[in-house]
């Protein structure tokens, strides 16, 4: 595999992981604009463990992911009392706060950044992304996913039918945070250097954009969205200075034609009917 292709696929893998971190809470109707903050927690926590305690990264990365998930629970319980635009604002602020904490934390290098010793090769990153996709596919086949959809669709009715609305929301938020932390851990160990500035709000916003673009109704949306956003700008390289303009035009066009995202539930039903009459 050429170095260029490997580089693109690694970015794709990280974008896919990030997309699912955003997707899980979105599936329950919550916009998390602070996902980069949870990536930072996973990245710094796992890097700290490998650097300072010589822990194997195969253990450190899951631990970092778990810590991000726990922070998701702790933060999710109060933050998820807010809804809609207020939740978006609260998570936005949260992402900023987390990044600011790492920026000022001298034990992990502060503003100078934090070199990471252990190295995760591209193949490890690919497997990590594949693992996340498989986990998400599994989850999408369970009642948990059904409950998330129910909560998103009509929280009052879901509640009256016995669905623990708060429980589902916190679980989705925390699981999303754990997935973000997992991606952050691999990011730290693949690039061997992290700095707080990387985990900024643009990263969160772009990720949300992939997911909305791909569609939140089915589990395939984030995969399609992340792939599109990663590969299309690369394919448009030929037209060089126009590529971002062309890309932006693409997005606007698609959003106008398919406001629910590229991949929707009805698309699947249509397809299934054609295959199995």
């Amino acid at each position: 595999m050429s170095g260029y292709l490997t580089g693109v696929l690694v970015v794709l893998a990280f974008n896919v992981i990030a997309a699912y971190a955003v997707y899980l809470p979105l599936a329950a109707g919550q916009l998390n604009l602070g996902i980069a903050g949870f990536m930072a927690i996973g990245a710094y926590a796992s890097a700290f463990l490998t650097n300072e305690y010589g822990v194997s990264m195969w253990l450190a990365i899951p631990v970092g992911s778990l810590l991000a998930g726990l922070m998701g629970v702790v933060i999710g319980i109060p933050v998820l009392r807010t809804h809609g635009i207020y939740l978006a604002m609260a998570t936005f602020a949260l992402g900023q706060v987390i990044a600011a904490v790492f920026l000022n934390l001298e034990v992990v290098g502060g503003a100078a950044g934090y070199p990471v010793t252990d190295y995760a090769p591209p193949v490890a990153v690919f497997w990590a992304a594949a693992g996340v996709v498989v986990l998400m596919l599994y989850i999408s086949r369970t009642r948990f996913a059904l409950c998330l959809t129910a909560v998103k669709s009509d929280a009052t009715v879901a509640d009256l039918l016995g669905v623990s609305v708060r429980g589902m929301q916190v679980a989705a938020f925390a699981l999303g945070a754990a997935v973000a932390g997992f991606g952050g851990g691999f990011y730290a160990h693949h690039f061997n250097f992290i700095e707080a500035q990387h985990f900024n709000v643009l990263l969160s916003v772009f990720t949300v954009l992939y997911v909305l673009f791909g569609g939140t109704q089915t589990v395939w949306g984030p995969l399609v969205g992340a792939t599109f956003f990663t590969l299309v700008p690369e394919l448009l390289r030929a037209s060089d200075q126009w590529r971002y303009a062309v890309f932006a035009a693409f997005i606007i066009l698609f959003m106008a034609v398919r406001p629910q995202g590229l991949v929707t539930a009805s698309l699947f039903r249509l397809f299934r009917r054609k295959v199995a009459p």
């Binding site: 599994y138 999408s140 086949r141 369970t142 009642r143 948990f144 409950c147």
Partner: peptide, 8 residues
């Protein structure tokens, strides 16, 4: 029950 992949 929540984690049973009933769709599979």
């Amino acid at each position: 029950a929540l984690l049973t992949p009933y769709r599979l």
